[in-house]
Design a protein around this nucleic acid. Structure first.
Lengths: 338, 338
DNA sequence: ATGAAAGCGCTAACAC
DNA sequence: GTGTTAGCGCTTTCAT
């Protein structure tokens, strides 16, 4: 089927195709009469602008590349949800790419974005990402770039993150406030700034409350239900005393909770538990799981908004803005009477 | 910064730019020598193909539009995850759009896709969608279209769905097998084929087992924790006897589970419960919640694969293929000793 | 207020 | 095996 172009409309009305283009784009110098005529015939003929042609000529695609590790993690899908919502309202579309936590795939994704001439890129880097020749190239090309959640420390890029230090601090302070003293901390071995920041928050809160930071209470491993369970099993077996657990992530906290139940250790009276992320299941399990909310959808929305600002000031060199969202304590039954 | 084009490479090597283009695209008629020379200078100059120009000329964008109601629902993000994974492997990119269950937004999304000249569209329709002038137009334009999960009955479009009837049947048969007889069914008021199919499965299983379909045991409302809870509350208050609950969706089942606990009704000994969707929380709550798995990631992958087939046979008129995935019973503690 | 004309960077048909 | 040429459908500058 032959596609209808602005020339077809021009021919029908006996005007030049550039007038048609202007009318369609609401150019101020076009009379209302012709605008109406043009738009009317456009819809009558079933005309649809060819954005590919428009993009080639104008150099702008109105497409933003979004690259995340894995859309199956509720954290990332919630953020992408927020990004898409706001971008959509502002007439931008989202080109989606999953890196699967692999550096090669991340690089390939960015390469694709560059070839597709996206107007900008929003990314959350992989766990493998330390440096970023590919990210550096984005900036060299003058394409707006923004990181959310996971940023790269030494690269001066605008970003939207939550205050992970404060999150760790809040969680720990909460446990202390509830009367717990020997607080186990379960973290990952991976080198990701967001996780170490939570640990620093944990330590700072202990110190601020006059409690010692006991290295034997800090456990590392691959975050998972199994890790939480194994940790409790080991502490019980070795009879190491503890009265609370702060895990950097909810599933691990959940594993600990299940193991405590298994060992008939009462929660929260004997041991308190808090996680991080406020996953959906936290309010449904028994006892309900305390956590720290990361404002995921909001993170996506703020990312999109900051990004739109960036697009406006394109060209001008600005110090990279950094939005830090507040983590929110969500106290539930696993750490007291809530 | 001036972008480097194939003409720049051609100038450097004193050959014509079309030879460069052919070399880059591994055209068989180009000598290895020139191919190597071209590729070498291409990387040296930092050349990146302009896909926008290539698309304008070739008429193919290698972009697939994907439209879903809401990415925040784990069901849809899992499917999109699967779609992106397979499409990515096959050098297609995903343009993402959320309809928010609104017909207008769905239409706008499709309009954008059409203007962006996507090579095809994969969609899960909104609850409002009954007819589809916008979907009809896609087909008129000869653009491959595929539905997943929610399809439109009267439109002949290839689709990937699960057998919801069978899912409802399996869930009900399972409850009957466990000895339950008065099985409450909680469904939605919305007119969505997938939900009524589950209800038909429920009824068929009852009949097949010589049990009566009792209209007073079928409840309708806005699916949610609250609906499940309210349903149990009402049955208890009105002293209507029942010994099991099959909700068409896990959150509603979860609400029922919580209300049963509240009323000190033992699960599964006094009342059995099963949901639908196999949400992540099901294996974490107490008692664990039985459910029916929908193979979400696989649905995305199968959608992508079928779609790639469609793209191949473009032009040829084929009877629309329909892939029906098997729902999988996930028996857990809420309906017996699992 | 409108028209003419150039060109964005490629692909592909046709020539030699 | 390589070069020439003609667009794809727009945006945008320069005329008038």
């Amino acid at each position: 089927m032959k596609r209808v172009t602005i020339e077809d409309i021009a021919a029908k009305l006996n005007i030049s195709f550039s007038t048609v283009a202007r009318a369609l784009n609401d150019h101020p110098a076009i009379s209302e009469a012709t605008k109406n005529a043009v738009k009317e015939t456009a819809t009558r003929l079933g005309y649809r602008q060819n954005k590919v042609a428009a993009s080639l000529r104008s150099g702008r695609t109105h497409i933003i590349g979004v690259i995340v590790p894995n859309l199956q993690l509720s954290f990332f899908s919630a953020v992408v949800h927020g990004i898409e919502r706001i971008m959509n309202e502002n007439d931008y579309n989202i080109l989606l790419y999953q890196s699967n936590e692999a550096l090669v795939q991340e690089a390939r994704g960015i390469d694709t974005f560059l070839q597709s001439r996206v107007d900008g890129i929003i990314a959350s880097v992989t766990q493998e990402t330390r440096e970023m020749p590919h990210y550096a190239e984005i900036r060299k090309r003058g394409i707006p770039l923004l990181f959310f959640d996971r940023a790269i420390a030494n690269l001066e890029v605008p970003s939207v993150v939550i205050d992970d230090f404060k999150g760790g601090y809040l969680a720990t302070q909460h446990l202390v406030d509830q009367g717990y003293r020997r607080i186990v901390h379960i973290n990952t071995e991976q080198n990701l700034a967001i996780f170490s920041a939570r640990e620093e928050g944990y330590k700072a809160a202990l110190i601020a409350n006059g409690l010692a930071v006991d290295a034997s209470l800090i456990v590392r491993g691959p975050l998972s239900l199994a890790l939480g369970e194994a940790t409790v099993d080991r502490f019980v077996a070795q009879q190491i005393p503890f009265d609370a657990i702060f895990a950097v992530e909810d599933f691990t906290a959940m594993g600990a909770l299940q193991a405590l139940k298994k060992h008939k250790i009462k929660v929260p009276s004997a041991v308190g538990v808090i996680g991080f992320a406020n996953e959906a299941f936290g309010s449904l399990v028994t006892p309900t799981l305390s956590s720290v909310d990361q404002q995921t959808v909001r993170m996506g929305e703020e990312s999109a908004k900051l990004f739109l600002k960036l697009l406006q000031q394109k060209g001008k060199v600005m110090p990279p803005e950094k939005i830090v969202l507040e983590p929110m304590l969500v106290p539930r039954a696993s750490s007291g009477n809530f």
